[in-house]
């Protein structure tokens, strides 16, 4: 069983972070460490902090950035802000969802990929935007994102967002 490690103390990393010991900040630290909020750690936290487990779960499920399930090896985040939406982000998300066979907010069974759709990442000039493992891919389309994910699947190096993939259709080029 995972235990809440003793060195998990607020404010050690940065003196400017709020030191009121709030559950939110503790959950943020736990999530940073484990990539999600493991149930046994939350139970341990409730005991050690003398807070009801119900309160911890109500916070953990209220805020979007917390996850009660483990994330995949590759974390795919699609931006669904308004700017991304009007440039077709929904289609992009749908294609990823179809390709991986999972809905946004879940992880593939083999633990390889998790998909998340977030409200706005504030990089609207690059709409539609997809972030995979903290690497940003701008001006996405259904076709481009499938190529990128295929690239991950075949362990190829992912192309950068500048490499606007050109289709290999010789017929088209001569036309």
């Amino acid at each position: 069983m995972k235990a809440l490690e003793e060195n998990l103390r607020l404010g050690q990393k940065d003196p400017h972070i709020q030191q009121n010991g709030s559950i939110i900040s503790l959950l943020q630290e736990i999530q940073e460490r484990y990539n999600y909020l493991p149930e046994d750690v939350l139970r341990d936290l409730a005991k050690k902090r003398n807070v009801s487990l119900m309160e911890i779960f109500s916070i953990a499920t209220f805020y979007k950035s917390f996850s009660l399930t483990p994330k995949g090896k590759h974390k795919i985040v699609t931006c669904s802000g308004t700017a991304c939406h009007v440039r077709g982000s929904e289609k992009v998300t749908r294609e990823i969802s179809r390709k991986l066979g999972i809905e946004p907010g879940s992880t593939t069974e083999d633990g390889e990929y998790s998909l998340e759709s977030v409200n706005c990442l504030g990089a609207c000039a690059l709409a539609p935007l997809v972030v995979i493992d903290d690497q940003y891919f701008g001006s996405m389309s259904s076709a481009k994102i499938l190529e990128i994910i295929n690239g991950y699947a075949t362990k190829d190096a992912a192309c950068s967002c500048h490499a606007q993939t050109e289709e290999e259709t010789p017929e088209a080029k001569t036309a």
Binding site: I17, Q18, Q19, S25, K64, F66
Partner: peptide
């Protein structure tokens, strides 16, 4: 004094 508080994602 100023401190930083990080939101956890809620509109």
């Amino acid at each position: 004094r100023v401190s930083v508080s990080i939101g956890a994602g809620a509109f």
